[in-house]
C-alpha cells in the first residue's frame, strides 16, 4: 500500500491535494518546506510517492529531489511528481535529472492529480 507525502509551503495547495486524494484512502503526510520534507521522508521508509512543489523556503523542491537522489531513495522506488508553473522548462529538466518521474502544471484539476496517483500508487 502506497504512502504519499505532499511537500508544499502553501497551506491552500496542501489542502487542495488532500481533498483531491481523499477518495483513494491512501495515507497522506504533509510537509511545509523542503527541509521538513527531507526529514519526514528519511524518517518514514514507507513513503513511496512524493508530490513536490518547486518554490519553497529553506529548501526548494529541486534541492529536495537532488538530496533524495543522492540518498539513493529514488533508486529505492520513491516516485516524485513535481508541481510547477508553466514556463520553467529548465527547472523541470533539473528535476527530471534528479529522478522526478512526472510533473503537473499548476493550477491543476483535482481529477488530474487523482488519476496520476491512482496510476502510480501500488
Amino acid at each position: 500500500m502506497s504512502k504519499i507525502i505532499i511537500v508544499d509551503d502553501s497551506n491552500t495547495m496542501r489542502q487542495q491535494v488532500r481533498q483531491a486524494l481523499a477518495p483513494t484512502g491512501i495515507t497522506l503526510v504533509e510537509a511545509v518546506d523542503g527541509q521538513d520534507g527531507l526529514t519526514k521522508v528519511k524518517a518514514d521508509p514507507a513513503i513511496d510517492i512524493m508530490i513536490l512543489d518547486v518554490n519553497m523556503p529553506r529548501m526548494n523542491g529541486i534541492e529536495l529531489a537532488e538530496a533524495l537522489h543522492k540518498e539513493g531513495r529514488i533508486a529505492k522506488g520513491l516516485k516524485i511528481i513535481m508541481l510547477t508553473t508553466e514556463g520553467h522548462a529548465e527547472l523541470i529538466q533539473r528535476a527530471k535529472a534528479a529522478g522526478a518521474k512526472g510533473w503537473i502544471v499548476k493550477p491543476f484539476k483535482p481529477e488530474m492529480l487523482l488519476a496520476t496517483v491512482k496510476k502510480v500508487a501500488v
Partner: peptide
Amino acid sequence: LSWESVTDGFLPLEVALEQ
C-alpha cells in the same frame, strides 16, 4: 518537454496531454 511526458507513460495519458 511535455511530449516526453506523453510518451514516457508515467503519467496517465489524459494528464500528460493536459500539460
